[in-house]
Amino acid sequence: MSEKDTRYDASHIQVLEGWEAIRKRPGMYVGSTSERGLRQMVFEVADRAVNEVLASRASSVDITLTPGGGVCVADDGPGVPIDETEGASVPGLEALLTQMQTRVDTGGHRDVPLGFCGIGPAVVNALSRRMTAEVRREGVRWAQEYARGVATTPLTKVGAATGCGTTITFWPDADIFGTTEFSFDGLEERFRELAFLNQGLDISLTDLRRLDVSHSVRLHFPGGTQDFVDFLDGHAAAHALLETIAFGREVPQMAGEMDIAFRWCSCPDERVRSFANSWPTVDGTHVVGFRDGMAAAVTAYAREHGLLTPMDPDIGADRIREGLTAVVSVKLDRPEFEGATRGVLGNSEVRDCVGQAVQDHLGRWLKEDPERAAAVIDPIVQGARRD
């Protein structure tokens, strides 16, 4: 091997910054270059708008799939600031759309995380062949254009504004993505989920890609997680054994709040969905606490009414699952996730807080009506005895 072949020095190190790094490894920032990555692009742009609504600075978010293959995200908030950002020599809007880790502070300490890794709309700009931004603020309409992460025009006054808000439209770069066709159903599923989990959220999703057939849905659910349980049950809701049990509670011990709804149906399947700060989770301390609390409440009621003998073991969490539909949502000041995908919540104090709250609430509910308590408890106890 020659000296040329073995030489290894600083010339071999390639430094990629800003939009170059994003375009070189897009999967690191939006998850993939397939349709799943396209959906994540929409979520990155919608993140700020959604949290403006939850902070009561806007009333709604409108998302439109346009005929030209773009996506338009609009809100009626105060408008992204257009003055220069502290520490940057560009307007706030341009910093938000061109500089990584720049975000608008909505004032919320439990913001909904839609972004994949917290970079925000700058990653969308870098992966789009074109992006346009319009800000309506203090009676003036401002506009700016971008291409592949770079501003191509200065921020310019383009006329008077009626109302206020921000509209960002982007067209994904076909050189990056294997497809630029968005799934309406995929977007609807996630935004519906957010609307269930955040009762003040109002989102409209419109598909104008085919001018002869347009489609629009409004996602707004005042019933919150209780409506979510009804939706998950679908046609099985008609066969529900009992009404939905739902409650919310602020718990200082876990520096957060919980919002939980559940009920039993006659169908054998279990449908339990869990979320931490509106992010979908597959497991975690909130789920374990929920199951602990359910099992403790059922066991205590069964023992108090002589349905279990002193020799019978406590009813395990696995016995309460049949026919159970539940939504377990917690929102924390400092959520701790296990792993980069945020699929498992790790806050240890959450388990005891959720478990105690569920045990107390379900225990009271069972004691209020012996007939409905029997409809729940009897099948569970009989199943436990068969095991």
Rank of each mutant, 00 (worst) to 15 (best):
L241I: 15
P313A: 15
D202Q: 00
D202I: 00
R129E: 15
N198A: 09
R25M: 14
E94R: 08
H239F: 09
R48E: 03
K24A: 15
A10R: 12
R136F: 04
S278E: 11
D227I: 01
S348L: 13
V80H: 01
K157C: 02
C117E: 13
P335C: 06
Q199E: 12
R190H: 00
V45K: 02
A151H: 05
T309M: 02
A261N: 12
G70A: 03
R7P: 05
A49Q: 07
D105Y: 03
D5H: 14
V381A: 13
I119S: 08
G323V: 05
V71R: 01
R271A: 12
E371Q: 14
D312T: 13
R39D: 13
D9W: 11
P91A: 05
D352H: 10
G79D: 03
D207M: 01
N277W: 03
K367P: 14
L308W: 13
D75A: 08
S329R: 02
A195R: 06
M311P: 00
W264N: 10
D233K: 11
G284W: 11
A276D: 07
I63V: 04
V45R: 00
T341K: 15
V15S: 12
V135P: 07
G118H: 10
R273D: 03
L187F: 07
D269T: 12
E145I: 02
M41C: 11
R351H: 04
G31W: 04
A160N: 09
L93F: 10
F43Y: 15
A126P: 04
T98C: 07
D76G: 10
G79V: 03
C265T: 14
V53F: 10
L208R: 11
E134C: 11
R57Q: 15
R303W: 04
P280I: 12
W171G: 10
E188M: 00
E193F: 00
F221D: 01
W279M: 10
D83V: 12
A296Q: 14
I260Q: 04
G68M: 09
V104Q: 07
D83W: 15
S2E: 06
V53T: 07
G284K: 11
R385E: 14
K367R: 15
P268Y: 08
V213M: 01
C267H: 13
A317T: 12
A161E: 04
E193V: 02
G343S: 14
D75V: 01
I22N: 08
V123H: 10
V213G: 01
T85P: 03
S204H: 00
Q359T: 14
V327M: 05
